[in-house]
Amino acid sequence: MMAFDAENAETDEALLAAYATGDARAARMLTLRLGPRVFGHALRLTGNRTDAEDITQEALLRLWRAAPDWRTGEAKVSTWLYRVTGNLCIDRARARRPNVALDAIAEPEDGAPGADDRMQEATRMAALQVALTSLPDRQRQAVVLRHIEGLSNPEIAGIMDMSVEAVESLTARGKRALALALAGRREELGYAEH
């Protein structure tokens, strides 16, 4: 367990440097660490599993190819990946508008323990995903980065190449648009007033 913990303590940047020297262990660890992260973000932005899978493969392929020239201290791997993933999602959305996205959320199994709770969570996530998908691309990206990925406004400004003030404005408008898209669904989502 100690070795596992020690490996987890390595930064993305240190692992990427090891990757560039041909360390196969670093390749496996980075894939395990970054694959789910990029896929989750891409799925929130596209609302479509197939698109999210394609984008994850493309984003990580670009990272592997950038690894030999990566300059430690200049860029964080996570920031770089958020930017590349966001751009790939926007490119794809421009080429093809996404379908209404209900496949972003796994179906809960009936009869399993806590099935009712899981059904409720699935309903909430599906509703949120549909509402997110209805937002303009940049608004959706800003809201996901701020409220789901939990990044700070300056970090988002770096990822989206805009000022902090513009990020604040974009997330505020995005949040308001979400509230409107989910209007009248408070009880259905299990957030009824007591």
Binding site: A20, T21, T31, G35, T56
Partner: peptide
């Protein structure tokens, strides 16, 4: 949301194939 095992396998194979 979690990626499928098949996607994770493809990601690992690509990482190793592209590695210097």
């Amino acid at each position: 949301p979690l990626p499928s095992g098949a996607l994770m396998d493809r990601l690992r194979d690509t990482a190793l194939a592209e590695q210097p």
